[in-house]
Amino acid sequence: MSQDKSRRSFLKNISLASLSALMLAGCDMKSFDEFLQKHFRTLSAEEIDEIIKELEKEYREKYGKDFKVSAKAAMEGTLFGYALDLSRCVGCRKCVYACVEENNLSRDPQLHYIQVLQMDKEKGIDFEHANVHYNPEKVPEKGHFYLPVQCQQCRNPQCTTVCPVKATWQEPDGIVVVDYNWCIGCRYCMAACPYGARHFNWGEPNVPTEELNTDVHYLGNRPKMKGVVEKCTFCIQRTREGRYPACVEICPAGARKFGNLLDPDSEIRYILENKRVLVLKEELNTRPKFYYFFGV
């Protein structure tokens, strides 16, 4: 019997051997399935249902809680926009922590989607001299104003174009999302974002079980893993159900406004048409859907 010594048969045999070695080494079928999961945007409705069922099962085993995982698609005729009233924000940081709770963000290591920058009124909007660690007895402090920064949901996002594996993209309703299962953790998107709005899980995310929000979206606030990038999604799990984002509802000054840019009767359109509005780093042509305005 002549032996086949071609390169083709060598490759075939070695891959079969390593595959069986992997199987023998205790690699269960579930993580194997997860490894072979297709790109989210190419999945059929049935495949998404399957993945969601698996996730709900996994979370029940891991946290002992019943999660409701949604993969609700964008509503027809919506383009989400956000506006923040710089003349009202008092810098209390309530939004920062409402966001942490709503979106199951890691407490330790600490991860915040929102950074509230304290600025000098004299200097105007000046990122070089902004202070994120201010901690006086009471806010607002005299001579200062406050500028919270989070994902600006650009119409022309640079974070998505640099992703080498297309793990992040802009949805039809304008929300820039990340598929944590697809992210390889290269952090190119963090380098590309001019707003510092993307955050990396350097360690295993840590959320106290009793504080877990079990109402989650696949592309949003589901529990994240070590080694993936995450970001503000306008609370996709809430806004696709018609609700306001958590930061809007917590703001005691009523400085945060949210709505559908395609609806001429929305508060966001009223602001764009009647108030003095600005976007951050306009010269970069990222074209944010997150606006800052002066209500007075």
Partner: peptide, 13 residues
Amino acid sequence: KFEALTPEPPPVM
């Protein structure tokens, strides 16, 4: 006049 508020803790250094 809108009353001054106690801020939530700053992010960890």
